[in-house]
Structures are given as structure tokens and as C-alpha cells.
């Protein structure tokens, strides 16, 4: 029972920290420290602390979102993009298309333009942008590149070739693996093939989903 008030306080401060996410680091630290101090001070003044007391203290302080809103106003920090209703524009659509297939239209550069648009747009948060950039660099272009030029790379790419061949009935014609290991290599190849094709598609779908669910993202 005695841990419940501590948990409440911990949750409150965590929530506050998240709400202040877009404040400069030193200010965020100062505010969280001061409010933690306020809570400690108020709790120290209680003779027999109950959960209700702690809830009253936290309620008196106010909703972390309200405090953060006030802090943004005081420090003239712009309201975060996730807090506002966001309408997807041409830039977001172009970013998604180019990230996925841009490298197929203009090798390398098509995808790079997509990355720039992704980072310029304020429709996504930093985590989304990192996901969009890292899975995979080049988008579907990477997959096509690996299939067209397998000899340049070793291991994984070779296995990919094995996997492509079954369609022509030449499963055991893998360039440098024996027929015994053909199945294993084929399985690994299938996984890799799946990963390089599916991951960029899943990533794009995820980013599109985030685009359509911005208000929900604000509470995350």
C-alpha cells in the first residue's frame, strides 16, 4: 500500500517530463526538479500521508499538459506539431512515395529527396523520422539493387540469388553453395528477400498510418 503514493508521484513526474519534451533541456530539468521539490515539500508537511493527500497535491499542481502549455507560452516555444490537428499535404505524400520507390525513379537521389521531405515535414516525430530513414536506406531500391547486383556482395546477397532461381526451376544452381546446404541457404535467402522487400513497405504503411492518426500520437 505504501508504494502507491510514490507510484502516483513517479507517474506524474514522468508525464510532466514527456509533456515538456520540446522545451530546452535545462529548462525542462529545472521545472521537473522544482515540481518534484514542491511535491516532496508538500508530502513532508503531512502527518499521516494517505493516497488521497497525494492525489490532492498532484491535482493542486494541475495537469502536466497545462503546466507544459504554460511553460511553452512563458518561454515562447512553439506548440509541438503533434498537438495540433495535422492535414497531410503534398509534401507528406511525396515523402512517402519517394522513400519507398524514389530510388527506382532516380537512383539514390530519389530516395534522398524523400528523406529530406520526411525530415522537413512536421507531420512526424523524430522517432518516426528515424524509422523512415533507417528501414531501409534506398527503400525498394535497395532490394532491387541487391537482386540485380548480387555478386558485389557476399553471403546474404548470394542466398538471395538462390531464392530467385526457384521460379526457373534451378534451385541448386546457387553460385557458391553446395547442394546439401542449398535448402538452408534458400531459407535464409527467403527471409532476407522478405526483409528487404517487406520492411520498406511496412515502414511506409506505418508512416502513412501515423499521418492519419496525429491526434492519437499526441497522447503517446
Amino acid at each position: 500500500m505504501s508504494t502507491t503514493p510514490d507510484k502516483l508521484v513517479e507517474r506524474y513526474l514522468k508525464h510532466l517530463e514527456i509533456e515538456l519534451d520540446d522545451m530546452p533541456r535545462d529548462r525542462r530539468r529545472e521545472l521537473v526538479d522544482e515540481i518534484a521539490g514542491h511535491i516532496a515539500e508538500a508530502r513532508a508537511g503531512l502527518e499521516h500521508e494517505t493516497e488521497a493527500d497525494v492525489r490532492n497535491i498532484l491535482e493542486g499542481l494541475g495537469d502536466p499538459a497545462v503546466i507544459a502549455e504554460d511553460a511553452r507560452e512563458r518561454f515562447e516555444v512553439a506548440t509541438p506539431a503533434v498537438g495540433r490537428p495535422f492535414k497531410a499535404g503534398w509534401m507528406e505524400i511525396a515523402a512517402l512515395v519517394l522513400l519507398l520507390g524514389g530510388a527506382l525513379i532516380i537512383p539514390v537521389f530519389g530516395w534522398l529527396i524523400g528523406v529530406v521531405l520526411l525530415w522537413v515535414s512536421n507531420a512526424w516525430n523524430v522517432r518516426d523520422k528515424l524509422i523512415g530513414t533507417l528501414f531501409w536506406p534506398g527503400g525498394l531500391g535497395l532490394a532491387v539493387f541487391l537482386i540485380l547486383f548480387p555478386s558485389g556482395s557476399s553471403g546474404g546477397a548470394t542466398a538471395t540469388v538462390c531464392e530467385v532461381n526457384p521460379s526457373t526451376g534451378q534451385q541448386f544452381n546457387c553460385s557458391d553453395s553446395g547442394s546439401d546446404s542449398g535448402f538452408a541457404v534458400g531459407a535464409v535467402g527467403a527471409l532476407l528477400l522478405f526483409a528487404i522487400f517487406a520492411v520498406p513497405i511496412i515502414t511506409t504503411a506505418y508512416l502513412a498510418y501515423r499521418l492519419r492518426n496525429q491526434p492519437a500520437a499526441a497522447t503517446a
Binding site: 521545472l31 514542491h38 515539500e41 499542481l61 497545462v66 504554460d70 511553460a71 518561454f75
Partner: peptide, 29 residues
Amino acid sequence: RYGFELVRSLAETDGMVTSEGTIYPLLSR
């Protein structure tokens, strides 16, 4: 005065602060 003390003084006067926590961004500013 320290923060908690200031908040208490302000909160005693009705209507001046609705969310006590908003004193801290002000103090910081």
C-alpha cells in the same frame, strides 16, 4: 522565499492560480 512557500501564498488568495504547477515556469522565466 522558496517555491512551495510562494505557491502556498498565492493559492491562499482565491482565483489567482488555478494550477499551482504553473508558478514554476513563471519563476524560471
